[in-house]
């Protein structure tokens, strides 16, 4: 009986001393955190993708609460609606960001760009890129091992097995740019989503001369400048055998798509043309 009593008393005393210590420490080292930081953070996706330029969602929320205006603070992952709610919570004006999206600048599908050699190393684009030009021998195109897929925190990019190329899921992509950073060949570009998702872009990254590009890939940009010639908005420049469309200047007329001899210029989300229907 006595043993139990002593045990209880000793443990009880330790408990009391510990509680007192904790109380003192809690009072002395108390830091006040604005409760709004937690509220703002709960409105964010919580993916810590870093697309806002901060080290994570908590850091972004802290910056929002501390800021006088939300002008330079935009979370591409949360979208406009969530940014408006954050602005309302903080009594500030939300800045409207142009929605961004990842676009794959390679059209070298298995059919268009036959595989000439076999790579049997580890399935990592960065590893394959280091040993050679890749299975198709295009030194600029997508390697298809999926470094972008593992970099995406929104499950928005996947490799299409039929083409061997990554496909971006528009409903999920936030334009955070993690895939573009992960790509060792910079095949993925982050650009504006375009009105109702309508975009025109060059699905090729090859800066090799046209003759060589044609040899390795039927869908590559050969730098023929036809698109630049037909563009009436001065939106296309051809530099180093590769056409680049400026999304700011492009008026979505699609004349370039029509003249491209290799089909390297791609469009998305355009309504079906009447002339196409009648055929």
């Amino acid at each position: 009986m006595q043993v139990i009593l002593i045990t209880v008393l000793v443990l009880g005393a330790i408990g009391v001393v510990g509680a007192a210590l904790l109380y003192v420490v809690a009072k002395k080292f108390h830091t006040h955190e604005d409760p709004r930081i937690g509220e703002v953070e709960s409105l964010l996706p919580g993916a810590n993708c870093g697309a806002c330029g901060r080290s994570g969602c908590h850091d972004f929320a802290t910056a929002c609460v501390a800021a006088d205006s939300l002008e330079s603070l935009v979370c591409p992952g949360a979208g406009d609606a969530a940014m408006k709610r954050i602005a309302a919570l903080l009594g500030l004006e939300a800045s409207v960001a142009t929605p961004q999206i990842a676009v794959v600048k390679c059209g070298g599908s298995c059919e268009m760009r036959p595989r000439r050699v076999r790579y049997d190393g580890i399935r990592l684009c960065s590893a394959e890129n280091a040993v050679g030009a890749g299975e198709s021998m295009c030194g600029y195109g997508c390697l298809g091992c999926g470094d972008c897929v593992s970099a995406c925190r929104f499950d928005a990019i996947h490799i299409d097995e039929a083409t061997g190329l990554p496909v971006v899921d528009e409903s999920k992509c936030t334009g955070c740019g993690a895939c573009a950073d992960a790509c060792p060949r910079k095949v993925i570009m982050i650009r504006s989503k375009g009105p109702r998702g309508m975009r025109v872009w060059v699905a090729c990254s090859s800066r090799d001369k046209g003759a060589y590009t044609m040899k390795v890939c039927k869908a590559g940009c050969i730098g023929c400048r036809k698109c630049a010639g037909v563009c009436s908005h001065d939106a296309i420049t051809v530099n180093g055998n590769l056409a680049v469309i400026d999304p700011e200047k492009c008026k979505l007329c699609r004349k370039c798509e029509a003249v491209c001899p290799t089909g390297a210029i791609r469009t998305s989300n355009f309504p079906v043309r009447k002339s196409d229907c009648s055929v």
Binding site: G132, A133, G134, M137
Partner: peptide, 10 residues
């Protein structure tokens, strides 16, 4: 000019 290297790059 540019030409092919053994590793497939130009």
């Amino acid at each position: 000019d540019r030409s092919l290297t053994p590793y497939g790059y130009m």
